[in-house]
Design a protein around this nucleic acid. Structure first.
Length: 420
RNA sequence: GGACGGGUGGGUGAGUGGCUAAAACCAGCAGACUGUAAAUCUGCCGCUCCUUGCGGGCUACGGAGGUUCGAAUCCUCCCCCGUCCA
């Protein structure tokens, strides 16, 4: 829905509601939109993100895309980097206390975050703020005053704390401070709306409550679903390894997106593409009735997502490559290369021979995490050397055979060797 | 500060002196089947060395010592977590 600056409130509402789980309170949110339409004053909408990891993945983009929607409608998008709060650690969804991040890590992460966020948001129209700006100089007096505005019982209502308490797991006192401190962001920004994933609901509501304590009207909150990771079970996260990073190369993205289950595909359509709701419904129906092959629907999804980050041409070639390698089982058009100088060979050679154990090569080239694993892979038939499957774990490769050799490990790893 | 309970491999969690690189389950990896799906089935799942063998060596049950031919299992001290009491 491009350039909807002067759209009706109903249209805005419909657009903003797509994919959202909850808008609290709904009526107030509508009133804010109406008021904004009347006065011509854009709403101040913010999303706070703690730079806890250096890279964004598709899961992060769900809520960033929603912020983008507000931006499209002419409202003020504020991207808040929690450079201070990241050093406390958000207890949300954590079964244990987070290790604190150092200043250096946070700064480095914040930097890469922004460049990635601007793949989605319009940098010229985005207000970027850092919460160290005000939290960094908060006095202990103000801190105590802030703590006086919320009760322990209410704090402990929160699911994460409850369950940890029940399971006799530790909760550090500083973790209680997290929602309170970040509430000052909402106060400082004088936000009308705050966005977040559903797991942030508690924090967002605390922010609203504290804003009112500080004499502000109290923001509306809009929550988005958590994107399920590639495994189809847990939330997408880097540490679980079930993610698609938004800076990943197109081929990588394509393969990862194709590996999700058919069921999961629809929530990806919903949350990480701009296909309109009716289009998604139609596709779903076509797959159900057998008009459209689910694999083709999934390819279209992958294509669309990749186009957003890398452009149409890259998406197309990723798709071609995918067909080639995985459907037609051909070698990839280009594979990673390992260059090695001829005079380095002696390091590998078995003394007194001119051969080297294949397992050792796999390990040295990072195709296996250990020699033991390399031998395992060979034993299980996962390894091809020059298109021939090797099953002897003690297989020796002759030096002469190594010039312009290719290695394949499993379905996804290829390596071309170039001896210079 | 006191009393009590607990800390095992990526996770959950068995194991109370040798048969335990450590049950079981989950996760993960590979192969088969496919649409590189999912589900399912089969195998693997600490590191290392070689002569690739039901091979050798090393490391591992919070930490450090000790007892013992032998310790995840017993003893001592320490660290960490929780519960109750103050």
């Amino acid at each position: 829905m491009p350039e909807g600056r002067r759209q009706s409130v109903d249209d805005q509402l419909a657009y903003l509601r797509k994919g959202a789980v909850e808008i609290i309170p709904e009526a107030e949110f509508r009133a804010k939109l109406e008021n904004s339409a009347k006065t011509g004053k854009p709403l101040r909408v913010y999303l706070g993100v703690d730079p806890t990891a250096p890279d964004l993945h598709l899961g992060h983009t769900v809520v960033i895309r929603k912020l983008k929607h507000f931006q499209d409608l002419g409202h003020t998008a504020i991207f808040l980097i929690g450079d201070f709060s990241a050093m406390i650690g958000d207890p949300t969804g954590q079964s244990e206390t987070r290790p604190p991040l150092s200043r250096e890590q946070v700064d480095a992460n914040a930097k890469t975050y922004l460049s990635q966020v601007f793949k989605i948001l319009d940098p010229k129209k985005t207000e970027v703020r850092y919460n160290s700006e005000w939290l960094g100089k908060l006095s202990s007096y103000e801190m105590v005053k802030l703590c006086g505005k919320y009760s322990l019982a209410r704090m402990l209502e929160r699911e994460d704390f409850r369950s940890r308490l029940d399971k006799n797991l530790p909760i550090s006192v500083h973790e209680l401070l997290y929602p309170l401190l970040t509430a000052l962001d909402a106060v400082q920004l004088a936000s009308d709306v705050e966005l977040g994933a559903t797991e942030q609901k508690f924090n967002l509501l605390v922010h609203r409550a504290i804003q009112r304590e500080y004499g502000l009207p109290g923001q509306a909150i809009l929550t988005m679903p958590i994107l399920v990771g590639l495994d189809g079970a847990k939330k997408m996260s880097k540490s679980l390894g079930n993610y698609v990073g938004i800076t990943e190369p197109p081929n990588e993205m394509f393969g990862k997106l194709m590996s999700i289950s058919d069921d999961l595909m629809w929530s990806y359509y919903e949350l990480v593409t701009d296909f309109a709701e009716p289009v998604i419904v139609r596709l779903k129906e076509e797959v159900r009735t057998g008009v459209l092959h689910p694999m083709d629907a999934k390819m279209q999804l992958a294509h669309n997502v990749i186009t957003g980050f890398h452009g149409e041409a890259a998406a197309r070639s990723a798709q071609d490559e995918f067909q080639r390698v995985f459907r037609n089982r051909e070698a990839p058009s280009s594979m990673p290369e390992k260059r090695i100088k001829e005079d380095e060979w002696p390091n590998f050679l078995t003394p007194g021979t001119t051969t080297v154990p294949l397992a050792r090569l796999l390990y040295s080239w990072n195709l296996a995490n250990s020699r033991a694993e390399a031998e395992r892979l060979i034993r299980q038939g996962a390894v091809e050397f020059n298109d021939k499957r090797i099953e002897d774990p003690a297989f020796q490769v002759a030096l002469a055979d190594l010039k312009h050799a290719t290695l394949r490990v499993g379905k996804k790893s290829f390596l071309r060797l170039i001896v210079e």
